[in-house]
Amino acid sequence: MTAEGKVLIFGFGNPGRLDDGLGPAFAQRMEQETPAGVTVDCDYQLNVEDASTVAQHELVLFVDAAEAGPEPFWLNRLEPVTHLSFSSHSVKPDALLGMARDVLGKTPSAFILGIRGYEFNEFGERLSEQAASNLEAALDFVRNGLCSGDIGRYLKQNEHRYGWRSETPAASMEGAS
C-alpha cells in the first residue's frame, strides 16, 4: 500500500501556450481537493531540482499535455532512464527518475498521465473545448484512485486499460511540454 504522505502529483506545462497548460490546470484543480498527505506540485517544466522532490516520495504521478494518443487520456508506467541532451534546460520525467536513482539513490514508482490536447503553438491562456473535457475525465480518474485508498495499486490496475505506446517513443514518454 502506498503510504499516506508519500504521493506526489506533478503537473507540468506552460499555461500560456493553450493546451500545453493541461498539466498545471490539473495540478491547480487537484490542489483544491487533494486529501491531506498527497503533495501537489506544478511548474512550466521539470528540472534537476525536482529529482530531490521526486526522491522524497514513494509514488509519483506526472501529469502533462499529450499531443498524440487516445482520448481523453492515457496512462503509462515510467522507468528511470539515462537521457542525453544537447542543451536541455528541462528534464523528461523518466530522466528525472534516472537522476533520482543515480544521484540520490531513490527509485519511486512513477506513472505519467497524458491528457490529450490539440492546440499548442500559439500564445493564449485557455484550453480548447475538447482538452477541457479531457481534463475533467482525467480528474475523475485520479479522484477515484485517491478515494480507493491506495492510488498506487489503482494506477497499476488501470495501467493496461489506459496504457498507450506511440511509435515515436518520446511522444508517449513525455507528453507535450
Partner: peptide, 24 residues
C-alpha cells in the same frame, strides 16, 4: 559544434513551447 553553442547557454525555448529537447 555542441560545445561551442553551449558556451553561450542559449535559450531556444523563447521560440517554442517544446523546451530543452535539443539532441542534434
Amino acid at each position: 559544434v555542441e560545445v561551442a553553442i553551449r558556451a553561450y547557454d542559449p535559450c531556444l525555448s523563447c521560440a517554442t513551447h517544446a523546451m530543452g529537447k535539443m539532441p542534434l
